[in-house]
Computed example of a mutant assay.
Amino acid sequence: MHPWLLAAIGGVLIGLAAVVLMAALGRIAGISGIASGLLAGAAAGDRGWRVAFVAGLVAAPLLLLLVRGDSGIGSPQVAWPWMVAAGLLVGFGTRLGGGCTSGHGVCGMARLSPRSLLATVVFIVFGVITVYVTRHLFGGLAA
C-alpha cells in the first residue's frame, strides 16, 4: 500500500475517532489530556474509555505490523538522549499549552476555537524551527 494512502486512511481514522468520542461522550480526543487523566487516576466511570483509547493507539501499529509486516513507525532518526529530551519538552509544552496537536489541531480547529488556532500555529512554527535546527545546524543528530 502506498505511504500516502496509509496516511490518508490514518487521517480519516483520527477524524472518525474524534467525532465518535465527541458524539458518544462529549469528550475531546486530545491524547495528552486522555493520557494525563488516565495517569492522574481518573474517576472509575471515566477510566474505561481512556484505557480503550490508549490501547487503540498502541494496537494500531501492531495491527499494521500483522497485516503489512511493517508497523509504519520506522526506525528512530535521532539518538535516544535527543528523543528523551524531545519527549520532556513536548510534555512541558502540552501542559503549558493546555493540550496537544490532537486536542488543539484536530478537535479545537474543527470547533473554530481561537485558542486552538493560536496553539496550532505555535506548534507548526516550533516544528519548522526544530526541523531546521536539527537538520541544518546540528547536522541531523543521527542515531
Rank of each mutant, 00 (worst) to 15 (best):
Leu38Pro: 02
Leu21Ile: 01
Ser75Trp: 09
Ala44Thr: 11
Ala60Val: 07
Ala43Phe: 13
Leu5Ala: 08
Leu64Glu: 06
Ala29Lys: 01
Arg68Pro: 00
Pro3Asp: 05
Leu13Lys: 11
Leu6Thr: 09
Pro3His: 08
Gly56Asn: 00
Ala52Gln: 00
Ala35His: 03
Leu13Gly: 13
Val67Thr: 11
Leu39Ala: 14
Leu62Asn: 10
Trp49Gln: 00
Ala24Asp: 12
Val20Trp: 01
Ile28Asp: 02
Arg68His: 09
Trp4Val: 07
Asp46Lys: 01
Phe53His: 01
Leu38Ala: 10
Pro3Gly: 09
Ala42Asp: 09
Ala60Gly: 14
Leu25His: 01
Gly30Tyr: 10
Ala7Ile: 06
Leu63Ser: 11
Ser36His: 10
Val12Phe: 14
Leu65Ala: 15
Leu64Ser: 13
Gly33Pro: 12
Gly10Ala: 14
Leu65Asn: 15
Val51Trp: 09
Ile28Thr: 07
Ala35Ser: 10
Leu38Ser: 07
Leu38Asn: 06
Leu62Gln: 14
Pro3Arg: 06
Ala52Trp: 02
Ser32Met: 05
Gly41Ala: 12
Ala23Asn: 04
Ala59Tyr: 12
Val58Arg: 13
Val54Gln: 00
Gly69Tyr: 08
His2Leu: 04
Arg50Trp: 14
Ala43His: 14
Ser75Lys: 14
Arg50Met: 12
Gly33Tyr: 11
Ser32Cys: 06
Gly48Ser: 11
Gly74Phe: 07
Ala43Glu: 11
Arg47Lys: 04
Pro76Asp: 05
Ser71Ala: 15
Leu5Lys: 10
Leu39His: 09
Ile31Arg: 06
Ile73Leu: 14
Leu62Asp: 03
Leu38Cys: 10
Ile28Asn: 05
Asp70Gly: 11
Phe53Thr: 02
Leu38Tyr: 09
Gly10Arg: 12
Leu5Ser: 10
Gly48Lys: 05
Ile9Leu: 13
Val12Gly: 07
Gly15Gln: 02
Pro76His: 07
Ile73Met: 13
Ala52Glu: 00
Ala55Trp: 03
Ala44Asp: 07
Gly69Met: 03
Ile9Trp: 11
